[in-house]
Simulated scan of single mutants.
Amino acid sequence: MGLWQSLMPNEYVSSIYEIDLEKLWNAGLRLILTDLDNTLVPWNHPSVPDTLEQWLKRAHERGFHVCIVSNNASGRVESFSQVSGLPAVGAARKPKPEGFRKALDRFHMRPEQAVMVGDQLFTDIRGGNRVGMYTILVLPIDRNEWWGTRVVRNAERIAMAGLRMRGLKRPQGSRR
């Protein structure tokens, strides 16, 4: 898989709330793996907003399993897992495949049955693509981020320009 192919998401939407769950279900996807910070909630946000709770309820009612796969420290991820009721893999080391495989194994799913949703090209999208999952890039919820992520965003801006030249369309309201 070439660099551009490894970074190209299958979809690019403004937020998780724009994901067409019915379309994913009809495509045979049954497991939603999702990043935590700036994908589900703002960075280090401790609680589950009502809108997220409602979205998770819709996903579960449709039959999806939802699991957090985050590079964040296990303590942060476990804490959010407890308040949200979502299973999670913390310190996942994305884009390495181990964290993704751990989540897939937990639900007895193959990569073709899973979607990876995240706000970062080099970790979420590249990792999901490398494992063979459907990938959805979302805009970061907030500009407040861990300093390491802010550094990577500079390289990501360059990569986004290359992906746009290869056909990636910006969602409405995108700053990327």
Results as ranks from 00 to 15, higher is better:
74 S>Y: 07
83 V>I: 15
51 T>Y: 05
82 Q>F: 08
69 V>G: 01
74 S>M: 11
59 A>H: 08
62 R>T: 10
70 S>F: 04
80 F>P: 01
75 G>R: 15
55 W>G: 04
55 W>P: 00
52 L>R: 06
85 G>E: 14
79 S>I: 01
70 S>C: 05
61 E>W: 00
59 A>T: 07
73 A>L: 12
69 V>R: 04
80 F>M: 06
70 S>I: 06
69 V>N: 03
73 A>S: 09
83 V>T: 15
55 W>F: 03
79 S>F: 02
83 V>Q: 12
79 S>P: 01
85 G>P: 12
63 G>L: 10
61 E>H: 07
54 Q>V: 07
57 K>W: 03
58 R>A: 06
59 A>G: 07
54 Q>N: 12
71 N>Q: 07
49 P>D: 11
78 E>H: 10
55 W>Q: 09
78 E>N: 14
63 G>H: 08
83 V>N: 11
67 C>Q: 10
72 N>T: 01
50 D>W: 03
56 L>W: 05
61 E>N: 11
81 S>G: 15
50 D>C: 00
49 P>Q: 13
65 H>F: 12
63 G>V: 04
71 N>Y: 05
76 R>C: 03
63 G>Q: 11
69 V>K: 04
84 S>L: 05
54 Q>T: 09
74 S>T: 12
64 F>T: 05
67 C>N: 09
82 Q>R: 15
81 S>N: 09
51 T>G: 00
84 S>K: 10
49 P>N: 13
75 G>Q: 15
80 F>E: 01
64 F>W: 10
69 V>Y: 01
83 V>E: 10
52 L>A: 04
51 T>L: 04
50 D>S: 13
84 S>F: 04
63 G>I: 02
65 H>A: 15
49 P>C: 11
61 E>Y: 00
55 W>D: 03
60 H>M: 09
79 S>Y: 06
75 G>E: 15
66 V>H: 03
76 R>P: 02
85 G>F: 10
51 T>Q: 13
82 Q>L: 08
85 G>Q: 13
67 C>S: 09
54 Q>K: 15
79 S>C: 01
56 L>F: 06
49 P>F: 06
64 F>H: 11
73 A>D: 13
85 G>L: 12
78 E>L: 01
66 V>Y: 01
71 N>D: 07
62 R>G: 00
82 Q>I: 08
61 E>D: 12
52 L>M: 07
77 V>F: 03
73 A>C: 07
83 V>D: 10
58 R>S: 08
79 S>N: 12
66 V>T: 14
64 F>Q: 11
71 N>S: 07
51 T>R: 15
81 S>V: 06
52 L>C: 07
65 H>W: 11
78 E>R: 12
58 R>K: 14
65 H>N: 13
52 L>W: 07
80 F>H: 03
70 S>N: 05
75 G>D: 15
74 S>E: 13
64 F>K: 08
71 N>R: 01
52 L>T: 09
67 C>Y: 05
53 E>N: 15
49 P>T: 11
52 L>N: 04
76 R>L: 00
63 G>R: 09
75 G>H: 15
51 T>F: 00
67 C>M: 15
70 S>H: 06
70 S>A: 12
79 S>L: 01
64 F>E: 13
84 S>Q: 10
66 V>K: 03
50 D>R: 14
72 N>G: 11
72 N>H: 04
70 S>Q: 07
75 G>I: 13
53 E>M: 09
76 R>E: 05
